[in-house]
Design a protein around this nucleic acid. Structure first.
Length: 460
RNA sequence: GUCCCCAUCGUCUAGUCUGGUCCAGGACGCCGGCCUUUCACGCCGGCAACACCGGUUCAAAUCCGGUUGGGGACGCCA
């Protein structure tokens, strides 16, 4: 088995493309076959090298390694002219001299009459030769059926009468998409073509090219689209869709890959898979055929899951860039790891974790004004003051600290929570934080004292 | 408009091929509870779906037909 992912570098790699890549990768790796990358950069106007770099780094971030160097279509001109030449020689293609304006006008008219726009075949039997501005068209059979057994959809077929004589070589000499894809897939020995649903209607045209070329046909599988909450095709309108944007938001590649895999594929009731587990469980026959809505909540849940599984050391390193984004750099490794351990179960993204851990590293904490208003009353300040002598030394253990809270709350006839909150606010600036004992250990007595004093001096 | 495809909880899905074990299972989210120094985590419980109509059959989420709804495609873009 040999599969390929063939993006065109006209934009960032988005989640739909990433899923296509993933399924191709899984199919190949499961079967012990090959997975190759082909950059379809024949659209000279819109293709940009920066997008190629974006695609490459997205795939490597996701862990989808390809075999061999990526192939670039712009470097394969000879191959395309060879295949086009074969079609011309066999009488399956012909030169068309129709002016662009006439074609455009015909399309406009057809659409106006609510017809399917199709080339009328004017040059088909004229036996024209090449000329400046001429294009090469494929001679589509006027009748009959072209069909295939789709890996995900089952039998699909089109009436050849629906197809027209498509352009295979443009007037600038470059092949069009359908020509290039077929020439590449044939010459690269691709056995399974897994691509988006939006290519279904290209398939009969490509099949006809394979047949005219007398080339072995690959298996085709068309993956259902990924849609936004409004059930429209996923696009920028739905917020972030590029793979790298998810990285910047603090998602782990394992989470995104796991989520994408479950969009259209399943293995019983199982939800959590590593790439390796998916690889062994993967099967083309268990790909679903209905479109799926991209739902960030489930991705968040998976991300939280993988964050919880990441050991402190690793998590600390992953959090660093996000902390740096908050202006916190050069952080002590031990302290960062300890901090990471305390926020690990309190956020869904690395970014959230960084935000929740930031208080450990700031010179002074900014008190949440609402909470300060509520907690730094006369009684609150009194409670806070009481911690000063008690915390000259670090409590021996979490139990020790708990005993301290117990005694304060009992003495004052308040709940433990009420005894803890003023301290929490002073130490962390917020009413929600990791356990106070952990916080104290990481901050140390000196910092704790300073923060308590700062809170005591706080004036709204 | 024409052609192609799709249709199970709000969402992702199992079950559909090989009808009965499904008054439909899991997960996310949501709601309630427990745990608890806060927030989380965790645990327990709950709400929630076979688009509709007809047919075949002793029996249909599962098979057939139609309707409706949704998506995609209709370029010298890929």
């Amino acid at each position: 088995m040999k599969t390929r992912f063939a993006p065109s570098p006209t934009g960032h790699l988005h989640v739909g493309g990433a899923r296509t890549a993933l399924f191709n990768w899984l199919a190949a790796r499961h079967a012990g076959g090959e997975f190759v990358l082909r950059i379809e950069d024949t659209d000279l106007q819109r293709s940009k090298p920066e997008y190629t770099r974006d695609i490459l780094s997205s795939l490597s971030w996701l862990g989808l390694d390809s075999d061999g160097e990526p192939v670039y279509q712009t470097q394969r001109a000879e191959i395309y002219s060879e295949y086009a030449g074969r079609l011309l020689a066999s009488g399956d293609a012909y030169w068309c001299h129709c002016p662009q304006e006439r074609i455009d006008e015909a399309r406009r008219l057809a659409l106006e009459n609510k017809d399917k726009p199709r080339y009328d075949g004017r040059c088909r039997d004229l036996g024209l030769g090449p000329a400046p501005g001429a294009v090469l068209r494929f001679k589509c059979p006027p009748d009959g059926l072209t069909g295939w057994n789709d890996i995900v959809k089952g039998p699909v077929s089109f009436d050849n009468g629906e197809l027209d004589d498509l352009v295979i070589v443009r007037s600038d000499g470059f092949p069009t998409y359908n020509m290039a894809v077929v020439a590449d897939d044939v010459s690269m020995g691709i056995t399974h073509v897994l691509r988006g649903d939006d290519h279904v209607n290209n398939t009969p045209r490509q099949l006809l090219l394979y047949r005219a070329l007398k080339a072995p046909e690959p298996e085709f599988g068309h993956l259902p689209m990924i849609m936004g909450g409004d059930r429209k095709r996923l696009s920028k309108r739905h917020g972030a869709t590029s793979v790298l944007a998810f990285r910047e938001m603090g998602y782990l590649p394992q989470a995104l890959v796991n989520y994408l895999a479950r969009l259209g594929w399943s293995s019983g009731d199982r939800e959590i898979f590593t790439l390796a587990e998916m690889t062994s469980l993967f099967s083309l026959s268990s790909i679903g055929k209905s479109a799926a809505v991209f739902n960030g909540d489930k991705l968040d849940w998976l991300n939280a899951h993988y964050i919880k599984e990441t050991p402190e050391e690793g998590l600390a390193e992953l959090m660093r860039p996000f902390l740096a984004g908050l202006g916190l750099t050069g952080l002590d490794e031990g302290k960062l790891q300890a901090a990471a351990g305390t926020v690990r179960e309190r956020g869904k993204t690395l970014r959230e974790l960084a935000e929740k851990a930031a208080f450990y590293f700031r010179g002074k904490v900014e008190l949440d004004p609402k909470a300060a208003d509520k907690l730094l009353t006369e009684e609150g300040r009194d409670i806070l003051r009481g911690y000063l002598p008690a915390l000259e030394r670090l409590p021996e253990s979490a139990e020790d600290f708990d005993a301290l809270l117990d005694s304060i709350s009992r003495r004052r006839g308040i709940k433990k929570g009420a005894a803890a909150q003023p301290l929490r606010l002073a130490l962390t600036g917020s009413t929600a934080s990791p356990g106070l004992y952990e916080v104290l250990v990481i901050l140390g007595t000196e910092t704790a004292r300073r923060r308590i004093e700062a809170a005591l001096e706080f004036r709204a």
